[in-house]
Amino acid sequence: MREAALLAAALAACVAGMGWLALAMETHWTQVRPDAPTRAAVLRLRALGSLDLAAGLALCLRVDHASMAVLVWVMALAGAALAVGLVLTWRPRWLRALAWVVSRP
């Protein structure tokens, strides 16, 4: 049960991380919110995204042997990126849940 919870948290961290990395790109940001992000906001989104992906790896390492954990993480990244890509295609507004980290102008 503990392992399942940790893995679920790892997946969630990967999805959120990929979501922030996507929002750091102007094309995708404008799909979610009308204002243009500042340079500082873009950097913050990138940093948050990268940190979250790293957190995903750390969570995977808590569950499995290192060789297995890395593999789970790499595959989870692919799954998370796909999920974010499809959300941006059909339900971009859902990513507002991640856009709050940048305050409105």
Partner: peptide, 14 residues
């Protein structure tokens, strides 16, 4: 590792 198995299926179908 059931999660990894499903992720492999996802990778293959992609």
């Amino acid at each position: 590792h059931w999660l990894l198995r499903w992720l492999y299926v996802l990778g293959g179908l992609l």
